[in-house]
Design a protein around this nucleic acid. Structure first.
Lengths: 192, 192
DNA sequence: GTCTATAACGTGATAGAC
DNA sequence: GTCTATCACGTTATAGAC
């Protein structure tokens, strides 16, 4: 196992733990125990916790961009399918017991995040908002989605809803997320 | 200063700190320093942190019920005013720099909350949802608010939106909350 | 190059001072 | 009745072993 592999293994464990514990709740000890080493060993790959946190968010951004590009090339002219793809992101976290979409968790921890993490998570929010804006504009143009006001603002409102629903579902019952999604599609008057 | 006064002073400081730091971020030392005593003194009033956390959420519930009853008796037949009153709750937190509506923060910390806190915060969510459901039903009956589906589900979707918007506003720019509220009223076709 | 022993500090909580 | 000295533990991080 070379250095890059170990680095990636640490990042994978980090991703899993952050969904459950958040950035503040995550510790080097948790990670090292899963790898069978002492906690200090992790510092060799990520000197400070801020380095690990930043690398994690950067990785999330890359993964999102790949997912978005994949769906765009596959369903570029089918906005309803794209919206379904976007709403599937938080669902993928909620389906794992005790976990939640990390974006809301990171926002809740804003006062504990290193500056680089905060900036990166804002960028991810922005990317999501831009993608959703495009989807809504396509849907409106094809008369498949209906809403008042400008698409950018509607996208912001929907993202807020998804983020809030993801947290509420994790802390209450997972079903909440499905109920909210159903309402979202009703509001946009999408026949599914 | 008798015991009840000191207890209340501790709860007031707790309320302020939790909005900024969350439950996990809050420490007895933070509180005791503001009171000019050692951290252990707080344990006399709240033996365990779980006691303090539970008392805090219970207090939030009481305050919400008072606020709701006050608005209900004042604007009982004016659903738009009531909705304005409900959306003012998260705003009151966001307006203070670095703070956020605590419900989202607590949800994000679900895996660190004592059981009693988790249950109480779920109860508060439920109370909010029930109130909003009533408001929406009144609005629909008076043809002041328009939406598809059942009021209960629409209330859940709106609460998710408010909770998510509150967190996004705190971690990004406060203006986000106002943008989302504007979209909410547009969606309900309320002329303001 | 990779990892461990250890430090320095913050945390919640107990025992007991006054 | 009210508060402090102190503990046991978990945290991030450094210095240095191998």
């Amino acid at each position: 196992m070379n250095k890059q592999d170990t680095r990636q293994a640490i990042l994978d464990i980090t991703a899993e733990l952050i969904q459950e514990l958040g950035y503040k709740g995550l510790s080097y000890k948790h990670i090292s125990e899963r790898l069978g080493v002492k906690n200090a060993a992790i510092h060799y790959y990520f000197p400070a916790k801020a380095d690990l946190g930043s690398a994690y968010v950067e990785q999330m951004i890359v993964q999102f961009e790949q997912y978005r590009d994949h769906l765009n090339s596959k369903y570029g002219d089918q906005p309803v399918r794209l919206l379904n793809g976007l709403t599937a992101i938080p669902r993928s976290f909620i389906s794992k017991q005790g976990m939640s979409c990390p974006l809301g968790t990171l926002d809740a921890e804003r006062n504990f995040l290193p500056e680089s993490m905060l900036l990166a998570s804002r960028q991810l929010s922005r990317l999501l908002c831009e993608w959703l804006t495009e989807i809504l504009e396509k849907g409106q143009k094809q008369q498949l989605m209906h809403f008042s006001g400008v698409a950018n603002n509607k996208a912001l409102a929907i993202l807020s809803m998804l983020q809030g629903a993801s947290l509420m579902a994790s802390a209450n019952q997972a079903q909440i997320y499905e109920d909210v999604i159903e309402q979202l599609f009703l509001d946009l008057a999408i026949k599914s």
